[in-house]
């Protein structure tokens, strides 16, 4: 388990670790367990639903999906530690490469895109796309860049609506730099940033609660997550920010802390 968490920490957004509880514990129980073990606090996701079946039985077990979602490796992670690390490194590198079939001259634009310079990458595609030979691949690559950026914007909108204002602010601040000078994306990002900077009363309350909970959770993962001080702080936050989504999450975490280990 800690090995997967270390990999998530090491690769950040370039890798997604999904923990699948496989011994019948419900969501409350496995989340409480993970908090107590200090396994929370990364981008890893947790579920009790098996997205796929793998061969063999018993725990621990793993499956590594490539960037297209196909199984690359599976089995006992303790027996394949090195292979898993190498395969992840290779896939992360592959993910930053341009889609298959992209001409070399356009691959440079993709490299810019993956480094976060979306505006420059799109401008290059437009420029290179004036060449008859490159017109079609440049158009396809541009469309892929726009689609991926719009997916991030959609994710950010979900964060705002779901009371994760702190996370949404970080995402949109980064996106604003990336798309500056690209009207088709700059406008969309700007609108969300404006919502975050001058929110209506309800959104402001959600944002304040979200920031307070994010700060408390950072503290929780560093020391004993469910000690009395943290539980009291969670309850206080839930009371102060009653009616907000972060307030609901704080109340739920306080409830998890009371579950039998």
């Amino acid at each position: 388990m800690p090995a997967s968490i270390k990999l998530q920490q090491q690769y950040g957004d370039a890798l997604q670790v999904l923990f699948v509880e496989s011994q019948g514990a419900d969501a409350d129980k496995f989340e409480a367990f993970a908090w107590r073990q200090k396994w929370m606090g990364t981008q890893a996701m947790w579920t009790d639903e098996r997205p796929l079946e793998i061969s063999g039985s018993g725990l621990p077990a793993f499956a590594l999906l490539d960037i297209e979602g196909k199984i690359l490796l599976q089995g006992n992670p303790l027996e394949q530690k090195k292979k898993i690390e190498e395969a992840i490194a290779e896939q992360v590198k592959k993910a930053s490469s341009a889609p298959a079939g992209t001409p070399a001259v356009l691959a440079k634009s993709w490299a810019r895109f993956t480094k976060g310079d979306v505006a420059a990458a799109l401008a290059e595609c437009d420029k290179l796309g004036t060449d008859v030979i490159l017109a079609e691949p440049a158009k396809a690559l541009r469309a892929e860049m726009v689609a991926r950026t719009e997916a991030k914007i959609t994710r950010g909108q979900w964060l705002i609506e779901s009371g994760y204002a702190a996370e949404a602010s970080t995402l949109f601040a980064s996106l604003a730099k990336s798309v500056a000078g690209t009207p088709e994306l700059e406008g969309k990002v700007g609108r969300e940033l404006a919502r975050l900077k001058a929110p209506d009363k309800a959104l402001a309350a959600q944002a304040e609660a979200s920031k307070a909970l994010a700060s408390l959770q950072q503290k929780m993962v560093k020391d004993k997550p469910f000690d009395d001080g943290n539980v009291k702080a969670l309850l206080k936050l839930a009371e102060k920010h009653a009616g907000t989504k972060a307030g609901e999450r704080a109340a739920r975490l306080a409830k998890l802390a009371k579950l039998e280990p």
């Binding site: 388990m1 997967s4 990999l7 998530q8 957004d13 370039a14 890798l15 997604q16 670790v17 999904l18 923990f19 699948v20 509880e21 496989s22 011994q23 514990a25 969501a27 129980k29 496995f30 989340e31 367990f33 929370m40 981008q43 890893a44 996701m45 947790w46 579920t47 639903e49 098996r50 997205p51 796929l52 793998i54 725990l59 621990p60 077990a61 793993f62 499956a63 590594l64 999906l65 490539d66 960037i67 297209e68 979602g69 690359l72 992670p77 898993i84 395969a87 992840i88 896939q91 992360v92 993910a95 991926r148 997916a151 994710r155 979900w158 964060l159 779901s162 994760y164 996370e167």
Partner: peptide
């Protein structure tokens, strides 16, 4: 049901483009 800490991810298709390490574990 959305996974804990999914931040809006509802399906595996949304994770395409990056490797996914699925860790089957038990409490």
């Amino acid at each position: 049901r959305a996974p804990v800490n999914s931040m809006g991810v509802r399906g595996m298709a949304e994770l395409r483009g990056k490797p996914v390490l699925i860790d089957f574990w038990g409490t």
